[in-house]
Design a protein around this nucleic acid. Structure first.
Lengths: 229, 229
DNA sequence: CCACCACATTAAGGAATTGTTAAGAAACCG
DNA sequence: CGGTTTCTTAACAATTCCTTAATGTGGTGG
């Protein structure tokens, strides 16, 4: 496994054990690692270390991950740097918010090292940032804009509440893929909260009410999917 | 509610109240549960019980969780078993060691039963995803896509109800192999429900009605087979 | 040629799943 | 704090799907 890597990774988290866990696994895979315990120090280190990838905890004292990411994005030398968020809760910062400040990926804690490493490899593999997830998804006469949490249907703009938006956004990211209620709960609500699966139905209905019945299809006994026409 | 689960869970913790709490919640959700109060007994029980998941307290007398996990990983029959650590906040330092011996996840104490159950579901769901065989089958002008639960015949997309889809998908996975009605019932309906074998005929007919008569062939006195042209 | 057998087809009742609504709880916002 | 929006849950309605049994069809051997 001793692949020769020259990639530089900066890990930012306020919890010492997490830093060690990540450093241990990254170095084992041959990455060059630096760590920082808050956003301010991260910026400092980033300027001289010029990492290829920053792993950034969203919840931190002094300067949180979102703000740190925004500052990193302003540094000319770091234009090509990847930023990946680490987050414990789906409630406080959503995937949508993370992408909005220029994150390249979004990983939920608890961190499973093997899964994380394969995600990181995947990020480096798409070396050009051309295939960044775009800020909007467009199919037919539906436009989903994650910066404003709005959806435009046939030119008519509709504002969706958070859960409804994320539901539609999640389904639309993988058109035609069927997700069970449990899949949707795990991905949108997170695994740390429990809500009854039928709650999904209600949100589905509200989304349909607002954007029309033509986009989300029910697959009985299985789940829901987005049908790009 | 009473979904039939056959998943086996071994809970290992030195605190009796924790064991009871977990047993109660797991059994309520239909899991088959065994418990052990230390690592040595856990290994013993695991060898004969062959659990699908082990919930393992990190801090235990006699043999701690990390060592127990290492031993479990050495047992050939338990290669596919998930190991999830239970850990209190103050014990976070052990994460590195925990993942290094092959843990699949960790859950923080104090345990919130509903969140725990949702995490456990997520773990098993992840598993069932990975061992699914190739998601789409293509032969001639028929395409069967398990991701979207749709079948495409000569470019025309048809939606099949669950049982019909499963039936077609199952037959198509082994073209030209003849399955008796009993085989099909056992594999698609499962062994714990009884339906009369002729029910299969009705489903076969409905599938033919939707995708055409050219794909499923009747072998008189034996059963049905998928004929890849 | 007819009786029998296996499968095909149909229709109807019941089972299971999803749609819809409303009400209370929780989060949000001045 | 109020007032408002959003989220969750539970109840009931609507719908789809599954199963069964009854009847139809074609082939086959006596």
């Amino acid at each position: 496994m001793g692949k020769i890597q020259t990639q530089k990774v900066l890990v930012v988290d306020d919890e010492e054990p997490i830093l060690e866990l990540l450093r241990y696994n990254l170095e084992k895979d041959g990455y060059q690692v630096e760590t920082a315990v808050n956003g301010v120090k991260a910026i400092e280190i980033a300027k001289r270390f010029l990492p290829d990838l920053v792993l950034l905890d969203i919840m931190m004292p002094v300067m949180d991950g979102v703000e740190t990411c925004r500052r990193i994005r302003e540094i000319p030398e770091l234009q090509k740097t990847f930023v990946v968020f680490l987050t414990a809760r789906s409630e406080e910062y959503s995937e949508v918010a993370a992408f909005d400040v220029g994150a390249d990926d979004y990983i939920m804690k608890p961190i499973k090292p093997r899964a994380l490493m394969s995600r990181i490899q995947a990020i480096f593999r798409r070396d050009s940032k051309t295939d960044l997830p775009s800020k909007t998804i467009e199919t037919g006469d539906l436009k989903i804009d994650r910066t404003s949490y709005t959806v435009t249907v046939k030119g008519r703009e509709v504002a969706l509440p958070k859960k409804e938006f994320e539901l539609l956004y999640f389904l639309a990211r993988n058109p035609n893929k069927v997700y069970s209620r449990e899949d949707l709960l795990a991905n949108i609500w997170g695994t740390d909260v429990y809500v009854v699966p039928r709650t999904v139905d209600v949100h589905i209905r509200k989304v349909r009410e607002k954007v029309g019945d033509d986009y989300i299809t029910t697959v009985k006994g299985v789940g829901y999917k987005f049908s790009g026409n």
